[in-house]
């Protein structure tokens, strides 16, 4: 290789090389796209497979009257299952319970979660890891275990709550009445999931610029004003995300209800209703229709959150 050839090659590259560079870039882009799909493909296929297949299958099954123990009587009935469900008061009371649980738990969790996040944010020294470890305990405990703990605590024979609480008698049966039963269900749900919310909010708190708070303080803003004028507005994105994720999670509530009441005393929720039709009654058609409707509800919540409240998930998830 002589130096002249090298120089000529260099000149060519620098001259009309714009085109050649572009070709190389697209080659590179194509290779990158291919690698991207090789890497992300398997996860994507599984994600789509384990949810896409079931929802399509459920859509199909929901058009039949089909009982697992009477396969010979399987019959196409169109949308009749949906008609039955949507005109049934049980569906609407389960819907009411689910919405109530969602609204109450998420609202309470936001307030408590914010308070916990503030404490975690402010506490320093050796207490900091202690507090952060403690808060992880409810997060790590299995929902079923939490459900049993709360159920036994309020249970008529096993519980100590009736002895401790001043406003109920020793024989008060928390699980006999819809509202008191729902209260205990919500307590267990709140206990278990508040840490998650408070950790999301803690991350949001860390993003509130300290100098802004200092400036507000110098300007003579009270603690209250600083909270509502500086801290909260700066945390809007993380609050919204915490809210949406917890709401969707609460909307699927099943474990606590199944363990504590199995839907007795009017505490049926949508997930428990779907479980009862398909798994307990083995009415695959009717149950599939309930499942599909539950899925549609989740879609609606997502749609409202994103379109109406403008939750920016892309930003929240760290995409740029």
């Amino acid at each position: 290789m002589s130096s002249t050839t090298t120089a000529r090659a260099g000149a060519t590259a620098a001259g009309p090389g714009g085109r050649k560079g572009k070709v190389r870039a697209t080659d590179r882009a194509r290779a990158e796209a291919r690698l991207g799909w090789y890497l992300a493909g398997p996860a994507f296929v599984i994600l789509v497979g384990v949810t896409g297949y079931p929802i399509l299958q459920a859509l199909y099954e929901s058009l039949f009257s089909f009982r697992l123990t009477a396969p010979a009587d399987r019959e196409f009935i169109g949308l009749r299952n949906y008609g039955v469900i949507l005109t049934d008061s049980l569906w609407w009371s389960a819907m009411g319970n689910t919405v109530l649980i969602t609204v109450v738990t998420v609202a309470v969790e936001l307030v408590i979660g914010f308070a916990l996040a503030m404490v975690m944010h402010k506490v320093l020294g050796w207490l900091r890891p202690v507090v952060r470890t403690a808060i992880l305990v409810p997060y790590a405990v299995i929902t079923v275990v939490s459900a049993y703990a709360w159920q036994y605590a309020f249970g008529l024979t096993t519980g100590f709550m009736n002895a401790v609480l001043p406003f109920v008698g020793a024989d008060f049966d928390w699980f006999a009445n819809k509202w008191t039963a729902l209260t205990v269900i919500c307590l267990s749900e709140i206990w278990k999931t508040t840490p998650f919310i408070s950790l999301l909010l803690l991350a949001g708190l860390a993003q509130v610029p300290d100098d802004m708070l200092e400036a507000a303080k110098v300007d003579g803003a009270t603690a209250r004003e600083r909270l509502f004028r500086v801290t909260l507005p700066n945390m809007k994105a993380s609050i919204m995300v915490a809210l949406l994720f917890r709401a969707l999670d609460a909307f699927r509530i099943f474990d606590n209800v199944y363990i504590m009441t199995k839907g007795a005393a009017g505490t049926e929720t949508l997930s428990a209703l779907a479980y009862n039709q398909t798994i307990s009654r083995l009415e695959i058609g009717l149950g599939s229709a309930v499942s599909v409707l539950l899925f549609l509800c989740v879609l609606v919540i997502c749609f409202i959150a994103i379109k109406v409240f403008g939750v920016d998930l892309a930003r929240a998830r760290g995409e740029s």
């Binding site: 996860a43 994507f44 994600l47 789509v48 384990v50 949810t51 297949y53 079931p54 929802i55 299958q57 459920a58 099954e61 994720f245 969707l248 999670d249 909307f251 699927r252 099943f254 997930s271 779907a274 479980y275 398909t278 798994i279 695959i284 149950g287 599939s288 499942s291 599909v292 539950l294 899925f295 989740v298 997502c302 998930l313 998830r317």
Partner: peptide
């Protein structure tokens, strides 16, 4: 799709998978 799967009602998956 990861997001969608995370909020997917688990109970909906159960019957078809079963």
């Amino acid at each position: 799709s990861a997001l969608a799967v995370a909020v997917f009602p688990v109970i909906t998956m159960v019957t078809p998978l079963f």
